[in-house]
Design a protein around this nucleic acid. Structure first.
Lengths: 216, 216
DNA sequence: GTAAACTGCGAACGACGTTCGCGGTTTCTC
DNA sequence: GAGAAACCGCGAACGTCGTTCGCAGTTTAC
């Protein structure tokens, strides 16, 4: 019995061998079904059995195409990253270009909120994610700082984007009923004077961050 | 059969009723064992059965003290947040104070890396986390902006700290063996010229971020 | 003294990821 | 063309997980 083994990353592993009957399904079909499930009911609903049921087959059959559920999650992440295309062309100042790119990333996370929970895994940097990263590096070409600083800036940028996306998609925390709030004087004072919320938080945050990391 | 129900958050739920024999264990004891397990073997090792075994009992017995595993994770998070005490007293510029506070938070995440994976949950803002947040708000008292901006700045600060902590604790990604790297021209060019890495990345990132959010 | 509310315990349930062996199908090699 | 090798779908099964439940025993309230 030969199944899809995990000797090498899923990206460069052949989908099937040369002999045997033509497969009923395909990796793309499985990944598409899994993404539809995640979009509709969240990441927890993406179980091997659920994906298999959506494809009218059994859970064990999926292991003809994938070596593990982690592989499936990796493929989902990269497939969704393909939705970043077409890449916006850099125009104007590099920081402005990056803010546009970050906005596109944020829009993607809004469309597929479950991706946020897959980004912090060490695995799963696929070809599409690499292409996006490469494009962002291209937008940073005019900046005269070293490559290490650019890597750090892009990593921080992606992190901030996920922070914004998470804040948006997260449910509001439950009320503090039952807690003795007098122990938190600054907190109650702040709630008494909410102040006005600046609208362009995303832009200002990224501009401050990127300027500090690239030009200081 | 009356167990610990989930009608209200775990923080204000009484640990036990008035009648019945004296319990063998306690919430604190369970949380402590769970934290020790997470420190030693990671969050995945914190199963109800494993915690129960460490306490020489059965998994089902834990539900006399907790209503779910999520409750246990909430308690672990807040218990670890108590390690932020004693709070550093604000001194000098508010931004400088915040950077000191952020550094303390980073040190905590270094001691308990698994906490990072628990922070993005909507539940689990316990009294210790609230006290820390209140103290940070106090350090921001001299800043003349509105409370909403301060909330946003603190949320971003915590987010950036988790980004740094995650980057440190994450294993390096597997090599890109087998991928056609010529498709990523900027990436290979950047790897050819790594440049020099600035040492004070944490400070500069936070300073740029906080200044943009609080004073612009 | 009796009833109510609690205790620990262990078996059990359903869901999960994954493995395995089976019979059948396709392709390669001679 | 014959046979071996590799692959296919399928369904049962394994071990682990969080959680529920009933039972027997213990403590408290009235």
């Amino acid at each position: 019995m030969v199944r899809v083994s995990d000797a090498s990353p899923i990206w460069i592993r052949p989908a099937r061998g040369a002999r045997g009957p033509q497969p009923t399904h395909s990796r793309d079909e499985i990944v598409e079904a899994a993404i539809a499930l995640a979009d509709a009911e969240g990441l927890a609903a993406v179980s091997m059995r659920a994906v298999a049921t959506a494809l009218h087959t059994g859970a064990g059959s999926l292991y003809r195409y994938l070596s593990s559920r982690d592989d499936l999650l990796d493929l989902m992440t990269d497939r969704v990253a393909a939705g970043l295309r077409p890449f916006p062309e850099p125009a104007g100042e590099p920081v402005d270009s990056l803010i546009v790119l970050a906005g596109r990333q944020l829009a993607l996370y809004r469309r597929h909120p479950w991706v946020i929970d897959l980004l912090h895994r060490p695995t799963g940097i696929g070809p599409e994610a690499l292409a996006w990263f490469d494009h962002c590096l291209g937008a940073l070409a005019p900046v005269p700082c070293g490559s290490a600083a650019k890597f750090e800036a892009l990593a921080m940028m992606t992190g901030v984007v996920t922070l914004f996306a998470r804040t948006e998609s997260a449910a509001p925390p439950p009320a503090f009923t039952g807690l003795d709030l007098t122990v938190y004087p600054h907190l109650v004072a702040a709630f008494a004077d909410p102040g006005v919320r600046r609208p362009d938080l995303f832009d200002r945050t990224l501009r401050g961050l990127l300027t500090a990391l690239l030009y200081d």
